[in-house]
Design a protein around this nucleic acid. Structure first.
Lengths: 239, 239
DNA sequence: CTATTATGATAGTAAAGCTATCATTTTTGC
DNA sequence: GCAAAAATGATAGCTTTACTATCATAATAG
């Protein structure tokens, strides 16, 4: 297996010219990640990016239609990378509970790719996903973009986690909701801990990622390995 | 108690001129809600809004600095309205479990205010919060805005729900995280059911709000009224 | 009924978000 | 190694957005 085999495959409709294949394309990816992290997606634009990489606006527009689609591209990259890591680290594990534990650790953490072949800083991309990720699908084009398969990566990532959830508790009625919730929760609580600390118990001063991982495991365990007293005292919420 | 007593108080730094106090201000609120719902926050702008209400861009700018702050204003309005409804419907309830049930119902639902005195359509505002709400705090100004108290309403809403959670289970270690998660989850799953149905078990065809309410109650009950088998088989996630 | 305040009308500026054209490199296929 | 094709750079321009300023008029409050 060559090292190129782990090149992440991204929906081709997201770009006009494949940015992974050319030096300028990789420069665009690399620096757009850094600039979106610095400026936020609203302040970021192709003119500034072109200036930074000593290229021109027109050249950037030859790769991506606009910054919104570039963001979707980057977020897809992140989802694909997470899927890949979960696969790598869980396929050899038999115990479903351990598998879920490892998956949750992948959700929160961002192992780096081989620095020699990567042109995106995964840690910085992770910060973007935490801060801007949901903007990828919170817009008026979501239905059209969904039809074009822009969110297949997210959905199959979610499905992968849902499958592990079902291995742990085959009767659990909300595997996909729990999976998507774990994914969203991870980003939210990292963000809250830093910016809106009263919305979480995760403490921004300590090791945030470790605490978020503990939080997710606590929630998932409660949901899945639980003899629910609630069923007895009042049937509310127990279908 | 006069009917004016339930006028919702919104942070004064969010506007230049109080839009609740003038006919034009109320027109701005009313129609911006409708237009943001129709166009999304990205396509919405003050020029279009001014055209729609037969006023001018300059006049709108006399009320709000920009559309981002207008969005924060509207979202604050929604949070304040939800807080008010939770108070109204839970203060007289003794049973904590029933209290939580009612709070969850308030989180998902959007009872209308008296049509005579309201100038915002709460159902439409609810759709905005579902689709655009998190953009109110996902931006580079979040820390500065948080210092100015723009998110006090959200935080105190979250605290109110966390208090009800603690009434139900005083030893629960993550009351604020669960509270914020219930709030975020409600919006997410309403949105997913409509646009990205593979991310949830909530079925977009049926009564979405009822299903989301059931989902939240199921999750909350599991978290709070649970004898956790997980503590015994493997200590993962049980601090 | 005048003094203040709110609105309208109009204009203008800087930046964002593109698109087009053509010259110049760089790459590819033979 | 060379011709054809493709990618990039340089430049220009256009439309829209996001504001700000000014002044006249309308509404209102004391």
């Amino acid at each position: 297996m060559s090292i190129l085999a782990i090149e992440l495959s991204i929906n081709e409709k997201l770009f006009l010219r494949n940015p992974q294949r050319t030096a300028l394309g990789r420069k665009i990816l690399r620096h757009s990640v850094m600039m979106i992290d610095e400026l936020g997606i609203e302040q970021f634009n192709f003119r500034r990016l072109a200036g930074r990489i000593n290229s021109t606006e027109a050249s950037v527009y030859r790769y991506f239609e606009n910054k919104q689609l570039l963001l979707v591209y980057l977020v897809n990259w992140y989802w694909e990378w997470m899927k890949f890591r979960i696969d790598m680290r869980t396929t050899h594990i038999g115990d479903p509970r351990e598998k879920l534990k490892v998956a949750i650790s992948c959700i929160v953490d961002t192992a780096k790719r081989d620095a020699k072949i990567t042109f995106i800083d995964e840690d910085v991309l992770h910060r973007i996903v935490v801060a801007e990720g949901t903007k990828a699908y919170h817009n008026k084009e979501v239905d059209a973009q969904n039809k074009d398969g822009f969110f297949i990566s997210y959905k199959s990532l979610c499905q992968k986690i849902a499958d592990i959830i079902l291995e742990n508790n085959p009767g659990f009625p909300y595997p996909r909701a729990l999976a998507s919730n774990l994914l969203e929760m991870a980003n939210n609580h990292i963000y809250f801990a830093e910016h809106l600390p009263r919305l979480t118990e995760v403490n921004g001063e300590g090791d945030v990622l470790k605490q978020v991982e503990e939080l997710l495991v606590y929630f998932a365990w409660k949901m899945l390995f639980c003899n629910n007293e609630g069923r007895l005292n009042g049937n509310a919420g127990m279908p």
